[in-house]
Design a protein around this nucleic acid. Sequence first.
RNA 1: GUCGGUAUAUCCAAGUGGCUUAAGGAGUCGGUCUGCAAAAUCGAUAUCAUGAGUUCGAAUCUCAUUACCGACUCCA
Length: 481
Amino acid sequence: MKFYNTFSRKKEDFIPINKNEVKLYSCGPTVYNFAHIGNFRSFIFVDILKRYLQFKKYEVKHVMNITDVDDKIIKKCHIENLSLKEYTNKYQEAFFNDLEKLNIQEADVFPKATDHISEMVELIKKLLKKGIAYKTADGSIFFNISKFPEYGKLQKLNVDQMKKGERVETDEYNKDSVYDFALWKGYKPEDGDVFWETEIGKGRPGWHIECSAMSGKYLGKTFDIHTGGVDLIFPHHENEIAQSEGANGQKFVNYWMHCEYLGLKDSKMSKSLGNTVFIKDLLEKNYSTRAIRFVLLSVHYRQKLNFSTEQLDIAEKTLKKFDDFIYELQNVEMTNIKNEKIVNYTKEMLEEFEKMMDDDLNISASLGAVFTFLKKVNKFKINNKLSNLDKKNIIKSLKKIDSVLGVIFVEKTLGIDTVHMEEKLQTLKISEDEIEEKIEARNEARENKNWAEADRIRDELLNMGIELLDRKEGTTFKLKS
RNA sequence: GUCGGUAUAUCCAAGUGGCUUAAGGAGUCGGUCUGCAAAAUCGAUAUCAUGAGUUCGAAUCUCAUUACCGACUCCA
């Protein structure tokens, strides 16, 4: 299995520190607003990565931080006259809600910055002691990049040649160098009640220190994979490396994996540009959460993705294809002979899927293998040449695929004609018998070549969300997904 | 200024030297099936941005050109 490591800018064989275990840290949300679909793209990337590692039988220990204190949050709190907790709780809840909707597996730990002040203070003390950090007159503490010669090694930038003009930094913090960054921000009156009294003074943590402190606490000084959006490479991840390696004197992260932007009409989507799309916006337009998930996962994570509702339409169609495929497996007349070809198809599909995913999560090629599989199996289905054994085999392999993709919902689709169907019909106030009666009436009309009546009945049912399928063996129905 | 990325059909998107006379999905056109649709199925739809070079052989490597995008400021 190979992953592209931002650090080396190359695909590298993945070798975890401990044989069957992967320690994974992901930069999570800053809860000062709802997370937009661009944010969720990177969280879905992590989800696919994590699920695939599990698919490969690794035990994954996953930590995702929640940033619940920073400049923007404090500002907003004051505007809305809420306490830090009141303000952030709302968005935190919304975040978890959206995670669930998008079928994103929860991390093992979601540490919050405000719960780990003491760990951050410890780390800063260590840096002060080593002389890599310094305190300024206003009580702030900065990281001194000149004491960490490797600074810039992730982003591959040369500090001396960086553009300096644009960086408008006021002198409020009295930094030695403009590139020194804050570990701790000394208290200022406008911070209001957002401060901590600590050994290193009264104030609040800088943004970067939380990830170093919390990853260290939950995953150790060196861990396997660190993820985030490409926009975090610099300065955030660069600074994390400086902090952690500066304090611990050992390698921080073995594999850095970064997710590309999601864009809208050729511009990147970000909160600061104000061109954001939220999950709820799309749900209001009646798109399903699984279609959203599908769009976000179907483009390779290192490829820019230009989001559009057209892609959602295609995704809905694609998912319907899966649903129909699985659903119709039940209607096929089953023989009892195991079909060698089907055995081969499933085997080939799973092998191809794994081979492609092993290559830095090449999801497009993996999905290609799945679609090719559907096509091949459909040919058999059409001729009623499937056995129960084949069916089991097919379902089993799709479930396996979906343990990674998380969008096909094999079980749920198979359950349509039992629990789900009953519930749905109840809300539609129609019984299965009544549907059968209508189908019969329609078939009678069809025999009499009364097409108008036949189509009327079909449309009537379709409007209720019941779709008729005319097959050689007769007419069946299913719920429209 | 210093670094970096991308360019494949109408659209999305695999493919990084021969297994590809370029996967897969969507669209469009035309068959099969159907009363007609839907679904399924078969077929059609690409001189791989441009120019030069390396090679027995290039979408794939090298150089140049053009276009777009990004980092160096908060951002997933």
